[in-house]
Design a binder for these strands. Structure first.
Length: 937
RNA sequence: GCGAGGGUGGCCGAGCUUGGCCAAAGGCGGCGGGCUUAAGACCCGCUCUCGUAGGAGUUCGUGGGUUCGAAUCCCAUCCCUCGCACCA
């Protein structure tokens, strides 16, 4: 196998490096590009199409803004480190990168700079690719994709047709969110509520655009939608199986989907209308004392259009509409319509109100109100002097008792037992609901808060929706053969540039051949990101969006890392797409296709879910602990850090600072410390490489060091696996510190140090890959570290127990020296416990109750007389808490290995003895796990 | 209001899933010592209280409980963060 050196690496990089400074420090500006070129040259990060079931490590691809920020760096450092770790462990790893490159900002940038979105975006990609490269992130660039590339977005169009054939595409008039500034519609998810801090100026509660913060208006337009609600149930249910996802993300999706089980029943109104209501409390129907509809309800709207007949309704509706979506109207406001509804349960006529607290888009926008058992109904009834009729009282086992409840005072919203409900009195709430559905000719229904996914955007820089509007045939799909529908040249205009592109827009109908126009809407960019992880499997395929067999084998993504801001939209849409793609047979994992998967649920039967494990990296805060922002001027540019300290330092600092999902504050001291640490390791490596400084005397101290090396490798393995990189790095620092201490001893041998540095380099490899390669070549190892083998990960025999013994003993010595005020200890004698005490413990541990009896019934121990009896009595009190111990010989060996630590620390002679070789009074003070100590001043 | 996640020593933050060397990792800050002409960096200790031989006491939001034994399990309660929220 070939071995590499910086010099050769430099050749790859084709840099003309200055002569190396003779200092024992590395120059990041020199080594980093060199090793990046070496990896590239050796195709280290490429994965062959023929690999089966690789570890799929994925970071959310970046929007092509032109520059990486710290959030990106953290995100990509995490996936890169994990991917490198898995590669060292011998896994084949798929770690691709691409560009989320459609979207409005490119249009804005094009306007500002008098260029076009494509050119602008391509420049951004070039620049960001360089930045990723300079960070040393290892991607398979042969799988690079860009969503603005027609080779990519034609498949958006193709998939759109697949979805359409599946009945998942709809065009309908939608009341949409319109951003006047971006001149586009927004999905509900893209409308944000302004945060409380700016809630003064009368716009409180109004939605704002997620991109530009403009106040969002509503308009009615014909729009294309994906009927994601068809999958609402499954999207909700399978969340339970996503145990590799953070709880909060799953919860956010649950909230978003908002499943609600209830019943709908029709009420006849005196207007002649039959109005459907939706309720989760059908059991309370006998207590309905009024009926309420939202101002937007069609029956109300009709009334409002006849102000002479319904003056109060008209006035109220006007007020409500003027107030906008939000709570400018008091919660108990409303207007009596003059009409009545018949309560099907009681036959009574109850008054019909328009009330703003009834929301148009919840349920059916109409409800019967039961003031006795609903707080809002109660408040409304009090305000409008409507009677309150109790129909439920607490059940026997409820917290409250029936006579404590006064529904005139406050609503009792709990389930209970029916009263005042005629023949149904005494029935439980749940049972009543079940029966009433049939009794009142209702329907049991499941409602969702989730709305269909509106994908139309009146913008240029997106995927054209492949439909043609023909005067005779209506909307006709563009045939597959005519795909892609490519974007026409960009023109500067205030509206939608596609509308202005007349030549592009005018076409003929694929069905009748007559004149027709193209759909000028483009797709929401979340369409692009809903399946990009599949395209990576076969990025150049030209007859399908992805290779189904390979994708079915390679999916799901094993580790997906990205920001929490995508908790709902992107992740929900990607889940939706994956399910649809399975249902149209483009994906099929099939049982057993994923040998490593042990859990059942979504993973056991085909690829139903895209992401097995999800991590949301925490924020990188500014030095002051606040979110980085231009206004606070606390931002840190990744480029500056890389220039000054190098990518390795930045990566190491970020990974040491906190676990991936936690936020942390930027710290110049931390960066400095990371850099010094790397320089320190490198320096030690140069000392080993020079060789002549150390001997080859392999003593007890070397044994100690070697055990620590093995233990560190084991810890690092475990911690990397668990995504706690900071813990792995912490123990690596401890090992380096030990190695340096050892190296500074006169009797230091080169072998343990070299072995230690070797292991340290490999552990650091995933996080600080350039320095690690540099050290690897200093040690004259074969090949590239990036392709080396992960160090064996077995902790040494009884490591924990021995380590505890040593640590406790050292602490005890310190305690004694301190408490007894010993100025200058001359000699320290340590005696391990005699074999008979070990034997006594063994017997005691196995004794059933009578510890003293058990111990003293042993022939050998009885001969020890009182000493044994006393020891047995001590044991009896703590028999439950006795730990594992080493044998006397093992204790002796462990302490021998560590004796140098005491010697160095106290500058005293240290003697480790068997009990038999020690003075009687000393030996008698010893216990297993706790040797006797004598210090001579 | 509903839901999720949390409350640990001066601060940050592990540990709590599988109760027991847990007075509780690590870092920062502070103190002492080493190295150095000096500073910085680096290295070694200490950093709840008391204690002249490794001991004792009191701690992990608060109050109860289970247990030989609880930061760790159970119940109640307060507080914090996030998400949803006039959701029928």
């Amino acid at each position: 196998m070939k071995s590499y050196s910086t010099a050769e690496a430099r050749d790859w990089a084709m840099t003309t490096g200055e002569p190396e400074p003779q200092e024992r420090r590395f120059d990041h500006a020199e080594i980093e590009p060199a090793w990046q070129a070496a990896w590239d040259d050796e195709d280290v990060f490429r994965i062959d199409d023929e690999e089966t079931d690789p570890e799929y490590v994925l970071a959310m691809f970046p929007y092509t803004s032109g520059s990486l920020h710290m959030g990106h760096v953290r995100n990509y450092t995490i996936t890169d480190a994990y991917a490198r770790f898995e590669r060292l462990r011998g896994e084949s790893v798929l770690h691709p990168m691409g560009w989320d490159s459609f979207g409005l900002p490119a249009e804005n940038a094009a306007e500002e700079r008098d260029t076009n979105p494509r050119e602008w975006t391509m420049q951004c990609i070039d620049s960001m690719k360089d930045q990723l490269g300079s960070m040393g992130f290892g991607y398979d660039w042969e799988r690079e994709i860009a969503t603005c590339d027609p080779d990519y977005y034609q498949w958006n169009q193709w998939l759109f047709q697949q979805f359409r054939e599946e009945g998942l595409v709809d065009r309908r008039a939608e009341e949409i969110n319109w951003c006047p500034s971006c001149e586009t519609v927004l999905a509900d998810e893209q409308v944000e509520t302004p945060d409380g801090s700016s809630g003064e100026g009368g716009v409180a509660g109004e939605g704002i655009c997620w991109r530009c913060d403009s106040v969002v208006e509503t308009r009615e337009l014909d729009q294309w939608v994906f009927t994601i609600t068809d999958y609402a149930d499954e999207l909700l249910e399978e969340l339970d199986g996503l145990d590799g996802w953070p709880a909060n993300v799953r919860e956010m999706q649950r909230n978003w989907i908002g499943r609600q089980e209830g019943d709908s029943v029709e009420f006849d109104l005196s207007t002649g209308d039959a109005v459907e209501i939706f309720t989760t409390r059908l059991d309370t129907i006998h207590g309905a004392t009024f009926f309420a509809m939202s101002p937007g309800h069609e029956v109300v709207q009709r009334m409002a259009e006849a102000p002479e007949e319904y003056p109060e309704v008209a006035e109220y509706v006007e007020r409500a509409e003027a107030a906008g979506d939000d709570e400018d109207l008091p919660e108990t406001s409303g207007a009596f319509t003059g009409e009545y509804a018949v309560n099907p349960a009681t036959g009574e006529e109850i008054p019909v109100y328009v009330a703003d607290y009834v929301l148009e888009d919840v349920g059916t926008g109409a409800l019967y109100a039961v003031p006795a058992h609903d707080e809002r109904d109660h408040a409304f009834a009090e305000e409008h002097d409507i009677p309150i009729q109790q129909v439920v009282e607490p059940a026997e086992d409820a917290d409250a008792s029936a006579d404590e409840i006064d529904v005139q005072e406050a609503a009792y919203p709990e389930d209970g037992v029916l009263v005042n409900s005629g023949e149904y009195d005494g029935l439980g709430s749940a049972e009543a609901r079940e029966q009433f559905v049939d009794v009142f000719d209702g329907e049991h229904r499941i409602e969702f808060r989730l709305r269909d996914w509106l994908i139309s955007r009146q913008r240029y820089w997106g995927t054209p929706i492949p439909m043609i509007d023909c005067a005779d045939c209506g909307y006709v799909p563009v045939p597959d053969d005519d795909l892609p529908v490519e974007l026409p040249e960009f023109v500067h205009t205030t509206g939608n540039p596609l509308d202005a592109a007349e030549d592009w827009k005018q076409t003929s109908c694929p069905e009748c051949g007559g004149d027709a126009v193209r759909e000028t809407d483009t797709m929401d960019t979340f369409v692009d990101s809903s399946w990009y992880f599949l395209r990576y499997c076969s990025p150049d395929l030209d007859d399908a969006p992805f290779d189904s067999d390979r994708a079915s084998d390679w999916m799901p993504v094993d580790q997906y890392v990205g920001g929490i801001e995508h908790a709902v939209m992107h992740l929900l849409y990607a889940r939706f797409f994956t399910k649809v793609l399975d249902d149209v047979d483009l994906l099929d994992g099939g049982p057993g296709s994923d040998a490593s998967g042990t859990s059942s649920g979504p993973w056991s039967d085909g690829v139903r879910e895209p992401f097995r494990n999800l991590t949301n990296q925490g924020m990188v805060l500014g030095e002051d602990g606040n979110k980085m922002s231009k206004s606070r001027d606390n931002g840190v540019s990744p480029q500056r850090i890389v220039d000054e300290y190098g990518a390795d330092t930045a990566r190491l600092f970020i990974m040491e600072a906190a676990q991936p999902e936690k936020e942390f504050a930027w710290s110049p001291e931390g960066v400095e410390s990371a850099n010094q640490f790397l320089q320190g390791v490198y320096e030690l490596a140069t000392r080993v490489a020079d060789g002549d400084e150390f001997g080859d005397d392999h003593g007890d101290v070397a044994d100690y060091v070697e055990r620590e090396i093995d233990a560190t490798a084991a810890t690092a393995t475990e911690e990397y696996e668990a995504f706690r990189f900071n813990h792995a790095l912490q123990s690596t620092r401890e090992l380096v510190s030990l190695l340096r201490r050892y190296a500074d001893r006169d009797d230091a041998a080169s072998e343990p140090i070299e072995q230690g540095i070797d292991v340290v380099a490999r552990i650091l490899g995933p996080v600080a890959p350039h320095v690690a390669e540099e050290i690897w070549s200093l040690l004259d190892r074969d090949g590239l570290l990036a392709e080396a083998e992960w160090p064996a990960a077995e902790p040494p025999a009884d490591y924990e127990i021995a380590q505890r013994l040593v640590e406790n003993t050292r602490e005890d010595v310190r305690d004694i020296v301190d408490v007894a005020d010993i100025e200058d200890p001359q000699s320290i004698t340590v005696a391990v416990a005699p074999a008979w005490k070990h034997r006594a413990i063994e017997i005691a541990t196995n004794a059933d109750g009578d510890v003293v009896g058990a111990v003293m019934s042993d022939e050998e121990l009885r001969q020890k007389g009182n000493e044994a009896a006393d020891f047995a009595k001590d044991l009896a009190g703590e028999v439950e808490a006795i730990d594992e111990h080493l044998s006397p010989d093992e204790e002796l060996a462990a302490l021998d290995r560590a004796a140098w630590l005491l010697r160095d620390e106290f500058g005293a002679d240290v003697e480790i003895l068997h009990a038999e070789d020690a003075a009687d009074d000393l030996a008698s003070a010893s216990e297993p796990g706790r040797p006797a100590i004598h210090i001579e001043e």
